[in-house]
Simulated assay, not measured.
Amino acid sequence: MSEHARLNGNGAAGVPMAGRVLPFTIPARSARGRAARLGPALAAILSAHDYPAPLRRLLGEALILTVLIGTTVQKGDGQTTVQAQSSGPIDLLVCDYRAGEIRGYLRFDPERLDEITPDALLPALFGTGYLAITIERDAEERYQGIVPLEGDTLCHAVERYFVDSEQIPTLVRGAVRQAEDGAWEAGGLLVQHLPHGETDGPRLAARTGNDDWDHVLALASTISEAELTDSHLSEGTLLWRLFNEDEVRVSPAIAITRGCRCSVQHFRDVLGRFPAEERAEMRGPGGTIDVNCEFCSRLFPIDIGD
């Protein structure tokens, strides 16, 4: 595929591919976006913990949103982290994206599971809390935006983040479902309006009442959850259904995999920063410091010596 291919009704963007993000622009409408599916990465992440079904849907939504945000704001090896903390049954949710790799987990109070119904909305899941989005492009460039956990879904909270923190009109949709064979599928769509057609340039303060954005917003809003989670519907075909009135240009797809960066050496390096007295207190009966990675649910016995 060339750097920018024009979309057509024959699926020029490619055949369905498990776990990928398809970047696109609509030049005449000063719009850009991402269509994404998680593929097998979702199953790998959800299988690390025994989450109830409503929490699997929530984590799946958070993961697809992290991919959409990360591939939009990141270039190179930087990291994007989406974190929610609250006073509700779910007190912590963390996902991060780096160079095509996604990981995430959530922490909940088992004694409050009766408060979570299958159709629970954001207030019932989190109570009072906030959503923090942290963008790290290198060791010296770090930015964080924080918004309240308000609205019915995490998508609503992310839309508010882009309006409040980035001043960019944004539509975000994410959907998660369990197929008849028990497999979980997740897909998402992010569309943004960048004034003056600067789809690849600096972000500018958004104007209101823009006819081009109203047009794109109306079309993008017709997307259904079934279309987002249909792994047999290519991302290119999905975009064609939405925006065939205009020229849509797609860039090479970004493959998405589950990636946890835990390792013995990583934990040794982290523990080595603690004073010797504190490391001694951390040691278990066997003389090792047992470190549990919440992302992949693996236990690492670390022997850091003297």
Score class of each variant (00 low, 15 high):
D109M: 02
E166W: 07
V163M: 13
T128R: 14
E115Y: 07
E159A: 12
V94M: 10
V172N: 11
F108P: 01
F126G: 00
R103T: 15
A139N: 12
P89C: 05
T153P: 08
L122G: 05
P110M: 01
G145M: 05
S87D: 14
S165L: 01
P148L: 12
E185T: 13
E166C: 11
G127L: 07
L190R: 14
A124C: 03
S87P: 00
E111S: 10
D119R: 13
D109K: 07
G127D: 03
S87C: 06
I133M: 09
R112S: 04
H156L: 10
D152A: 15
L154S: 03
D119G: 10
F108V: 05
G129D: 10
G151L: 07
F126D: 00
G88K: 07
E159C: 07
E159T: 11
P118G: 01
A175F: 15
L189E: 07
S165Q: 07
R142Q: 15
G188R: 06
E115F: 10
G145N: 04
W184L: 09
D96N: 15
L189N: 08
G100H: 14
R137S: 08
V176M: 08
L125D: 00
I90F: 05
L154K: 05
P110N: 00
P148D: 14
E101F: 01
G187W: 11
E136S: 11
D119V: 07
G174E: 14
P118H: 01
Y97K: 13
D91A: 04
D96P: 13
R142Y: 12
E150Q: 13
D164V: 11
I168P: 02
A183N: 08
R103L: 12
L122W: 04
Q192P: 05
G129F: 14
H193D: 00
Y143F: 15
G188M: 06
E180P: 04
S86P: 09
A99L: 08
V94K: 06
T128P: 01
A186G: 09
Q167N: 09
E101V: 00
E150S: 13
R103V: 13
L190C: 12
D114Y: 15
V147A: 02
D91I: 02
D152I: 04
V176F: 09
D109Q: 10
E101K: 10
E115C: 09
D96S: 15
E159L: 05
D114T: 15
E180G: 12
D119K: 10
C95P: 04
A157G: 10
H156R: 14
Q178A: 05
E180V: 13
G127Q: 05
S165A: 07
D109G: 00
D109A: 08
Y161M: 04
L121Y: 02
G151M: 09
S87V: 04
V163A: 14
E115K: 12
P89F: 06
R177T: 14
D119F: 10
L106A: 03
D181I: 06
Y130M: 09
E150W: 03
A157H: 08
D152P: 02
F108D: 03
A157T: 11
E141Q: 09
V172H: 06
L93C: 02
H156Q: 13
Y143T: 03
G188D: 05
L106M: 05
V163G: 06
L106W: 01
L93P: 03
E136C: 07
A179V: 06
Y143N: 07
V191I: 15
E185L: 13
G188L: 08
L149F: 00
R137N: 05
G151F: 08
D164W: 00
R177V: 12
P89W: 03
A175P: 15
